[in-house]
Nucleic acid binder design. Structure first.
Length: 275
DNA sequence: ACGAGCGCCTGTCGGC
DNA sequence: TGCCGACAGGCGCTCG
């Protein structure tokens, strides 16, 4: 799925406007069209369509990989999962293949949720914490310190990569940014989490923040058939680069499976915990 | 507590 | 060319 930087980029775009489109802030949702029922996690389709009508968009943000729309009465939460995307367009524009939810807005605008693989989910709720309550800390939150990360890593006995992907441990990292952060940290993806020293945890947190900030700076990555305008895919150091030279030592990047996920790393720079 | 396996979906790519 | 398996930015579930 889009990870933290991609979701942040989408939220920023909708909040700030641009590309000839206004900010969505202050606009009222006139009508919703649900084109694929399972996209809606809650409430029922009938209640959703009725309840969202007439609500104004008062805020747009992100928590972990969730897009958050603060409406006048409820919160609208969107999780893009693997292939979800949001489009803003004139309301007369043609509906696209794989459009799952359309929101007609004031000003002849339409916000469309498009999701090829149908894994994405949408919630309309008055208590968003019921949806996001299990999420771990935000990695970019200055209040989250390396000491806290080290404590959390040490209190578990987990393989580092799947733990970083666990959204209840840390919110927002996905497969790309995890591989990139572990590479910069010179940590093998199979390293046990409680093996890290405080110094290594400090380094890891700094590198997690570095790759996330780079991703945000490049407006996210556009890969496979989902193009959102970002170009961070051109700056990957290891992700998707199997067989290509490590940018640090030149050794070919390897791809292995860790926790069922394709994992890219440099066997020379990221030693330690072999398996 | 942890990890493996699988389901949910559609599409692309590489090998034969 | 066509088919077929592997794989894809995620996550929830069951099971051992």
């Amino acid at each position: 799925m889009p990870e933290l930087p991609e979701v942040e980029t989408i939220a920023d775009g909708l909040r700030l406007g641009g590309q000839g489109f206004p900010s969505l802030l202050g606009l009222t949702i006139l009508q919703a069209y649900l084109l694929w029922e399972r996209t809606l996690a809650a409430p029922s389709p009938a209640e959703f369509l009725e309840r969202i009508k007439g609500q104004e968009i008062e805020g747009i943000g992100r928590r972990g990989k969730f897009l958050l729309f603060q409406l006048s009465q409820d919160s609208l939460l969107v999780h893009l999962r693997m292939s979800g995307d949001m489009r803003l367009e004139p309301s007369a524009a043609p509906i696209q293949p794989h459009d799952r939810l359309l929101l007609d807005l004031e000003g002849s605008l339409r916000l469309a949720f498009n999701d090829t693989r149908k894994f994405g989910r949408v919630w309309l709720t008055s208590s968003p914490q019921d949806v996001t309550g299990d999420l771990g800390p935000e990695p970019l939150d200055p209040a989250f310190t390396a000491q806290m990360l080290h404590e959390r890593l040490s209190s578990r006995h987990r393989t580092i990569k799947p733990l970083l992907l666990d959204q209840s441990f840390l919110a927002g990292l996905g497969n790309i940014y995890t591989d990139e952060a572990l590479f910069l940290s010179k940590l093998h993806p199979n390293t046990p989490s409680d093996n890290l020293t405080l110094l290594q945890a400090e380094n890891l947190l700094a590198n997690i923040r570095q790759v996330l900030q780079e991703g945000i700076h490049h407006h996210g990555a556009s890969i496979d058939w989902v193009y959102r305008g970002g170009d961070f895919q051109n700056y990957f150091r290891v992700y998707g680069r199997k067989g290509l030279p490590c940018p640090v030592c030149g050794m070919p990047i390897e791809r292995i499976l860790v926790g069922q996920r394709g994992t890219h790393f440099c066997p020379n720079c990221q030693k330690g915990a072999k398996l």
